[in-house]
Amino acid sequence: MSETAGKTASKIKVATVWLDGCSGCHMSFLDMDERLLELGSQFDLVYSPLVDFKVYPERVDVALVEGAISSVEDEHKIHNIRKHTKFLIAMGDCAVTGNVPSMRNPFGPEAILDRAYEQNVATQAQIPCVIVPALLEKVRPVHEFVKVDMYLPGCPPSADTFYTVLSDLLAGRTPDVASLTRFGA
C-alpha cells in the first residue's frame, strides 16, 4: 500500500498548455492513441485543456506549451508557467517560431482588429474592449519571454515525434529532436 502511494507521489507531473495556437498540437498529442495509455501510466497529467483543472499547479515537472504569445494574458500565463515548471517544452511551431499567429506582425494589431471586427462584420461592428485580453504589438515565440528547455518544432509535431520524445524523456534520455521533426513538419 505504502509502496503504491510512494510510486504515485514520485510520478512525474506533466502539464500541457494551450496559448495562441490552433490546438492542433494537442490533437496530434492525442493521435498517439493507445500509446498514450502506455505513457500515461508513467506520469500524472496535472493541468491541460484535456482535463479539468482550472489553476496551474504549484509544482510541475514538465510542461508542454502549445501556441505563441499574442496577448497580455498569454504573457502573464507564460511567466506563471515558467515560475512553477521545472522543464518547459515549446510544443509546435507557434510556440517555437510564432508561426501562423505571427503572420499578423507585419500589419500590426490595429489593422488586424479593424479587419476582423469592423470590415468583415455585417452588423454591430465594434472592436472588443472588455473581457478579451489586449493584443501585444507583435506575436512572439515563447523563448522571447521565458527560458525554454526544449524545442519541438512542427505544425504539428507528429504523434510519433511526441511518442519518441516523451518516451526518451521519461527514460531519462535526451531525444534528438532535429532528426524527428522540423519547422512546418
Binding site: 517560431t97 501562423v100 505571427s102 522540423r182 519547422f183 512546418g184
Partner: peptide, 8 residues
C-alpha cells in the same frame, strides 16, 4: 523575412 513553413 516571414518564413511560415506550415503554410508555405
Amino acid at each position: 523575412r516571414n518564413h511560415i513553413c506550415s503554410v508555405c
